[in-house]
Design a protein around this nucleic acid. Structure first.
Length: 211
DNA sequence: ATATCGATTATCT
DNA sequence: GATAATCGATATG
């Protein structure tokens, strides 16, 4: 076994910035779920920035309510919401305390604990075509990682002790591309979706290089 | 290949 | 009461 480089949690200051900046810099980082001895890990390949109270598409547009208070709290914490009566989605709070803003995790490239992710997703692993169905899409990655609101809303994503955290290794992303956000009706034209162009785990339609 | 639709609930108007 | 930061199944070209 070749020794892998160490992975380190991202510090809180990383998240105390604008959602655009955090989203851009989260590409290529790692999302880690620790369940006792078991570790799930995935490379972040698609995220979206939600800007806060001034962003009509952001939950924070409703103001600081019981649901959205985490968005207005200190940076680096998990905001988990339930949508369409079916799915959980994971965000990380951004900006200094008092100012809302977040980044939605939309897709991961699964790296570790793939069998466990497949079990959580009820996906049978055959060809490589099956892998994107584990973590390509915000609802899918949450299910693969066992993320629920009851368990994870408010978790400290800068602390390995929380069991859900974000880490950095020596990976350096290439081909970053910015597009409009997916699945929203308000402010749908704003380019706030950040992807690793060409990565097979990015959700939605495949990026095609221009001729 | 794209289009449409149903599921199912927390939240806000 | 309407809507939603989604997914999977089904229908159609």
């Amino acid at each position: 076994m070749t020794p892998r480089p160490p992975i380190l949690p991202l510090p809180r200051a990383f998240f105390a910035r604008s959602p655009r900046r955090v989203a851009r810099e989260l590409l290529g980082k790692l999302l880690i779920r620790d369940l006792g001895e078991l570790r799930l890990a995935g490379r972040i390949v698609e995220v979206e920035a939600y800007l806060g109270e001034s962003d009509p598409a952001a939950h924070a547009a409703a103001g600081n309510t019981a649901r959205t208070s985490i968005l207005f709290g200190p940076p680096g914490y998990a905001y988990v919401y339930f949508i369409y009566g079916n799915h959980y989605c994971l965000n990380v709070s951004c900006e200094p305390e008092g100012k809302a803003g977040s980044v939605l995790f939309r897709a991961l490239e699964p790296l570790q604990g793939i069998e466990e992710m497949a079990r959580a997703r009820d996906v049978k692993l055959g060809g490589s075509r099956d892998l994107p169905r584990l973590t390509s899409g915000p609802g899918r990655l949450a299910q693969a990682f066992g993320i629920t609101r009851a368990r994870d809303n408010g978790a400290d994503l800068t602390s390995p002790g929380s069991g859900l955290w974000i880490a950095e290794d020596d990976f350096r992303p290439k081909n970053i591309r910015i597009t409009p956000r997916i699945g929203i009706t308000l402010a749908a034209e704003q380019p706030l979706r950040y992807i690793l162009a060409g990565n097979a785990f990015v959700s939605g339609r495949k990026y095609r290089p221009k001729n």
